[in-house]
């Protein structure tokens, strides 16, 4: 099943930010969202992840197929790398965490408390979480923030492997990951025309 977005409109704090969004994402493909800061990429990704309802339009093939990674990695500073990852693995059905640790080069850091990691290492741990979810559609919000060049390459490899295994990825990023499978989707064309916030409409 594909992730399919038809005539979707999304709102931030009740104010419409994007509308008329149409795209489909097959297995094995990646879609990179582009657009200036504040254009609504995060809002769109949160909507696709099911954290907030769409303003209008339809969204199919999402829900339980989505693995979402936001700006915040959801790490517990007092737990070790292995415990943090193991927790998410258990929540998502008990997958082995070893491949994820290996893919993001976290093996040597396994027993370190997450609180003592550097920003880039935390980010890698946050991204490793995607692999233990076992979900086919990755929804990524600025995944490469605070990653160095080597880590970006690791991440690109992980995404490539995910796509090769039939998965899909929807991400907002400004860095070129060198993915052949990636299409670019510029949200600037879908900016909502200025209109009243949802909660204000009844009062105008």
């Amino acid at each position: 099943m594909d992730l399919r977005v038809t005539d979707l409109a999304v709102a931030r704090g009740g104010v419409p930010v994007l509308e008329g969004l149409n795209f489909a994402l097959q297995g094995g493909r990646a879609l990179v969202l582009r657009g200036p800061n504040g254009s609504g990429k995060t809002t769109l990704l949160r909507t696709v992840a099911g954290l907030q309802p769409p303003l209008s339009g339809s969204l199919t093939g999402a829900g339980e197929r989505i693995a979402y990674a936001a700006h915040a990695d959801g790490l517990k500073a007092m737990q070790t790398v292995r415990e943090n990852l193991g927790f998410w693995a258990r929540v998502f059905g008990g997958r082995d965490i070893a491949p994820a640790l290996a893919a993001f080069d976290l093996g040597a850091l396994q027993e370190r408390p997450a609180g003592t990691l550097s920003a880039g290492q935390k980010r890698r741990l946050g991204l490793a979480r995607l692999m233990v979810t076992g979900r086919p559609v990755w929804v990524l919000d600025e995944p490469t923030v605070s990653l160095d060049a080597a880590s970006v390459a690791l991440f690109a490899d992980a995404v490539r492997a995910h796509l090769a295994a039939g998965g899909a990825a929807l991400m907002a990023t400004h860095i070129d990951l060198g993915l052949d499978e990636a299409e670019i989707f510029d949200v600037t064309n879908c900016r909502a025309r200025p209109r009243a916030a949802l909660q204000d409409e009844a009062f105008l």
Binding site: A49, G50, L51, E64, I66, A67, Y68, A70, H71, A72, D73, G74, L75, K76, W88, V91, F92, G93, R129
Partner: peptide, 16 residues
Amino acid sequence: LDWEDGSLDLLATAPL
């Protein structure tokens, strides 16, 4: 605490 570090969002997308 879960709200601040973002895990509440991630939990909301988890199969729970």
